[in-house]
Deep mutational scan, measured.
Amino acid sequence: HFTSQQLQELEATFQRNRYPDMSTREEIAVWTNLTEARVRVWFKNRRAKWR
């Protein structure tokens, strides 16, 4: 589960860029205190939901 702060950060990034690269995902991981893998999976799932 994600905190509302984490989701806000993830959503804001998603609005700007639906396909963040590795370095962007790592930055998000640092800001949100999540692993890069969790961030990558979140984006994958979010893109699926967005379609």
Rank of each mutant, 00 (worst) to 15 (best):
34 L>Y: 01
28 I>C: 03
49 K>D: 07
19 Y>H: 07
1 H>E: 12
38 R>H: 11
46 R>Y: 03
50 W>M: 09
43 F>Y: 06
8 Q>D: 10
2 F>G: 02
50 W>S: 08
27 E>L: 15
12 A>E: 11
5 Q>F: 14
24 T>C: 13
28 I>G: 00
23 S>Q: 14
36 E>V: 05
18 R>N: 06
43 F>P: 00
50 W>E: 14
35 T>A: 05
45 N>S: 08
13 T>L: 15
51 R>V: 10
7 L>F: 05
47 R>N: 06
2 F>M: 10
16 R>I: 12
9 E>V: 15
24 T>R: 08
14 F>N: 04
35 T>L: 04
17 N>T: 08
51 R>G: 07
33 N>F: 06
6 Q>M: 07
36 E>I: 05
29 A>I: 04
19 Y>D: 05
22 M>N: 06
5 Q>M: 12
47 R>P: 00
7 L>I: 11
24 T>V: 08
46 R>V: 02
31 W>A: 15
2 F>W: 07
1 H>D: 10
3 T>G: 04
30 V>L: 14
39 V>N: 00
49 K>Q: 12
39 V>T: 00
12 A>M: 11
10 L>W: 04
25 R>S: 02
33 N>S: 08
32 T>P: 02
39 V>D: 02
41 V>L: 14
4 S>T: 12
28 I>H: 00
40 R>V: 04
31 W>S: 15
45 N>P: 00
41 V>C: 13
51 R>Q: 10
17 N>P: 01
31 W>K: 15
33 N>W: 05
43 F>C: 01
49 K>N: 08
48 A>I: 11
1 H>R: 12
21 D>L: 05
14 F>D: 02
37 A>T: 09
23 S>H: 13
13 T>Y: 15
15 Q>A: 11
23 S>R: 15
28 I>L: 13
20 P>L: 02
40 R>N: 09
23 S>T: 12
11 E>G: 01
42 W>K: 00
31 W>Q: 15
42 W>R: 00
51 R>K: 11
39 V>Q: 00
20 P>D: 02
22 M>P: 06
42 W>C: 03
9 E>W: 15
25 R>A: 03
46 R>L: 01
50 W>V: 08
4 S>N: 11
36 E>F: 05
23 S>A: 14
38 R>W: 12
18 R>S: 05
44 K>C: 08
47 R>M: 05
9 E>I: 15
38 R>V: 15
13 T>P: 01
48 A>C: 10
29 A>K: 01
4 S>K: 14
32 T>W: 08
41 V>F: 12
35 T>D: 09
26 E>R: 14
1 H>L: 10
28 I>F: 01
16 R>C: 13
14 F>S: 01
14 F>G: 01
40 R>E: 07
22 M>V: 08
46 R>D: 02
30 V>H: 11
14 F>T: 02
24 T>K: 08
29 A>C: 05
16 R>N: 09
24 T>N: 06
30 V>F: 13
51 R>M: 11
15 Q>L: 11
25 R>Q: 03
18 R>C: 10
40 R>S: 06
18 R>H: 13
2 F>V: 07
48 A>T: 08
47 R>H: 03
31 W>T: 15
36 E>G: 03
23 S>M: 12
25 R>N: 03
11 E>N: 04
9 E>S: 12
13 T>H: 15
34 L>H: 03
12 A>I: 10
12 A>L: 11
3 T>P: 02
20 P>Q: 02
42 W>A: 00
43 F>Q: 00
32 T>V: 10
12 A>G: 07
41 V>N: 13
41 V>Q: 14
7 L>D: 05
10 L>V: 00
13 T>C: 15
40 R>Y: 07
47 R>G: 01
5 Q>E: 12
21 D>A: 06
6 Q>W: 05
32 T>G: 03
51 R>P: 07
37 A>W: 13
24 T>A: 12
9 E>R: 15
16 R>P: 02
26 E>K: 14
39 V>E: 00
50 W>D: 12
10 L>F: 02
41 V>Y: 11
49 K>I: 14
35 T>P: 07
38 R>M: 15
42 W>D: 00
12 A>T: 09
20 P>Y: 03
38 R>E: 15
32 T>K: 01
10 L>T: 00
42 W>L: 02
36 E>S: 05
13 T>F: 15
24 T>Q: 14
37 A>D: 11
34 L>T: 13
45 N>M: 14
39 V>W: 03
16 R>Y: 09
48 A>D: 08
31 W>E: 12
44 K>L: 08
17 N>V: 08
37 A>N: 09
38 R>T: 13
42 W>G: 00
46 R>K: 05
48 A>N: 08
35 T>F: 03
51 R>Y: 12
25 R>V: 09
43 F>E: 00
21 D>W: 04
29 A>Y: 03
17 N>K: 04
33 N>P: 01
34 L>M: 09
12 A>K: 13
5 Q>H: 12
6 Q>I: 07
40 R>P: 00
25 R>G: 02
30 V>M: 13
11 E>S: 01
18 R>T: 05
23 S>V: 12
44 K>I: 15
22 M>L: 14
12 A>F: 10
44 K>Q: 12
43 F>G: 00
37 A>M: 13
17 N>D: 07
5 Q>K: 12
30 V>C: 11
48 A>R: 14
44 K>H: 09
37 A>I: 13
28 I>M: 03
34 L>N: 06
25 R>C: 04
44 K>P: 00
35 T>G: 03
34 L>G: 04
14 F>K: 02
45 N>Q: 13
6 Q>T: 06
6 Q>L: 06
10 L>C: 02
15 Q>S: 10
1 H>C: 12
48 A>Q: 10
50 W>C: 09
16 R>A: 09
18 R>D: 03
20 P>W: 04
15 Q>I: 09
12 A>W: 10
3 T>S: 09
48 A>Y: 09
36 E>W: 03
44 K>T: 08
27 E>M: 13
11 E>M: 04
25 R>E: 02
34 L>P: 00
19 Y>R: 05
17 N>C: 13
31 W>N: 15
10 L>K: 00
49 K>A: 11
31 W>R: 15
14 F>L: 01
40 R>K: 08
44 K>N: 07
16 R>T: 10
22 M>S: 08
10 L>H: 02
21 D>N: 12
5 Q>R: 12
48 A>V: 09
35 T>E: 06
7 L>V: 09
36 E>H: 04
13 T>W: 15
23 S>N: 11
37 A>V: 12
8 Q>M: 12
16 R>H: 10
40 R>L: 06
5 Q>Y: 13
32 T>Y: 08
14 F>C: 04
30 V>W: 09
45 N>V: 11
29 A>H: 01
8 Q>A: 13
27 E>N: 10
49 K>S: 09
48 A>L: 09
40 R>A: 08
22 M>I: 09
8 Q>H: 11
51 R>I: 11
18 R>F: 06
23 S>L: 12
18 R>L: 04
47 R>V: 06
14 F>R: 02
16 R>K: 13
45 N>K: 14
42 W>E: 00
2 F>Y: 12
49 K>G: 07
28 I>N: 00
26 E>I: 14
11 E>Y: 04
38 R>L: 15
11 E>A: 01
30 V>I: 14
26 E>T: 12
22 M>A: 10
21 D>C: 08
33 N>H: 10
4 S>G: 08
